[in-house]
Amino acid sequence: NNDALSPAIRRLLAEHNLDASAIKGTGVGGRLTREDVEKHLAKA
Rank of each mutant, 00 (worst) to 15 (best):
L32N: 01
G27Q: 03
N2M: 11
S6H: 10
G30P: 02
T26R: 03
R34S: 12
A14Y: 09
A14F: 06
A44G: 11
I9A: 05
D19R: 07
N2L: 12
L5K: 03
N1K: 13
N2W: 01
A42C: 06
K39C: 05
T33K: 05
G29R: 07
I9E: 08
G27R: 02
A8W: 03
N17D: 11
E35H: 09
R11S: 14
A22F: 10
A4F: 15
G25A: 09
R31L: 12
E15T: 06
G30T: 02
E15G: 04
L18H: 02
I23E: 01
G29N: 14
T26D: 03
S6Q: 07
G25Y: 00
S6C: 05
L5T: 07
R11N: 15
N1C: 08
A8V: 13
G27L: 03
A14V: 09
L5I: 13
P7N: 10
R11P: 01
N2V: 13
K39R: 14
A20Y: 07
G25H: 07
L12I: 15
L12S: 11
R31M: 14
A22R: 11
E38A: 09
K43N: 13
N17I: 04
L12K: 11
L5W: 02
K24V: 14
R34Y: 15
A20F: 08
K24Q: 12
N2S: 13
A44L: 15
R11H: 15
S21N: 12
D3R: 08
I23S: 01
T26V: 03
E15M: 07
A8M: 06
E15R: 04
A14I: 08
G30Q: 04
N1Y: 01
H16S: 05
K39I: 11
R31Y: 07
D3W: 00
G27M: 02
G29P: 02
E38I: 15
L12W: 03
R34M: 15
A44Y: 11
L5M: 11
I9D: 09
I9K: 03
K39H: 11
H16R: 01
P7T: 08
E38L: 15
L12P: 02
V28H: 10
H16M: 07
A44D: 11
I23R: 00
V37W: 03
L12N: 08
A42F: 04
P7F: 01
T33W: 00
D36N: 03
A8Q: 12
L18K: 01
D36P: 00
L41P: 01
D19M: 09
N2I: 14
V28T: 12
T33P: 00
K24N: 10
L18A: 04
K24L: 11
L41W: 04
A44E: 13
D19P: 07
G27N: 03
K24H: 10
R11A: 13
I23L: 07
L13A: 02
I9L: 14
L12Q: 14
R34E: 15
T33D: 02
L41C: 04
D36M: 02
A20G: 08
E15N: 06
D36T: 01
A42H: 10
G27S: 03
A8P: 06
N2D: 14
L32I: 15
S6F: 05
D3C: 05
G27E: 03
R10H: 05
N17F: 09
K43V: 11
R34A: 13
S21V: 07
T26G: 04
A22W: 08
L13S: 00
D19G: 04
T33Q: 06
L12C: 09
R10Q: 12
L32Q: 03
V28W: 04
A42M: 09
A20T: 08
E38S: 08
T26P: 02
R31S: 14
K43Y: 06
R11I: 10
E35D: 11
K39S: 12
S6V: 05
E35Y: 07
K39V: 10
K43T: 13
L32K: 03
H16D: 03
I9R: 02
T26N: 05
A4N: 15
N1M: 09
T26C: 03
R34D: 13
D19E: 12
L41M: 08
I9F: 06
I23V: 09
L13N: 00
A22C: 05
R34T: 13
R34I: 15
K39N: 13
I9Y: 06
N17M: 10
R11K: 13
D3V: 06
T33E: 05
R31D: 07
A14E: 15
G30E: 05
A20P: 14
P7D: 15
I23Q: 01
N1T: 14
L32G: 01
I23A: 01
L12T: 09
V37T: 02
L12V: 11
S21G: 09
A42Q: 12
A42L: 10
G27P: 01
V28Q: 12
K39M: 11
D3P: 12
K43A: 13
A14T: 14
A44H: 13
A14M: 07
E38M: 14
A14Q: 15
A22H: 11
K39G: 10
A20V: 13
E15F: 05
T26A: 04
S21L: 08
N17H: 11
L5H: 07
D3H: 09
K24T: 10
E38Y: 11
K39D: 10
V28S: 11
T33V: 06
G30H: 02
A22E: 14
D3G: 10
A8H: 13
G27A: 05
D36F: 01
G25K: 06
D36H: 01
E38T: 09
H16Y: 07
L18N: 01
G29Y: 01
R10N: 07
I23F: 00
R10Y: 01
E15L: 07
S6G: 08
R31P: 03
T33G: 02
A44W: 09
E35M: 11
S6Y: 05
R10V: 15
L5D: 08
A4M: 14
R11W: 05
A22I: 12
A8T: 12
L13V: 04
T26Y: 00
L13T: 01
L41D: 03
V37R: 00
P7C: 07
K43H: 11
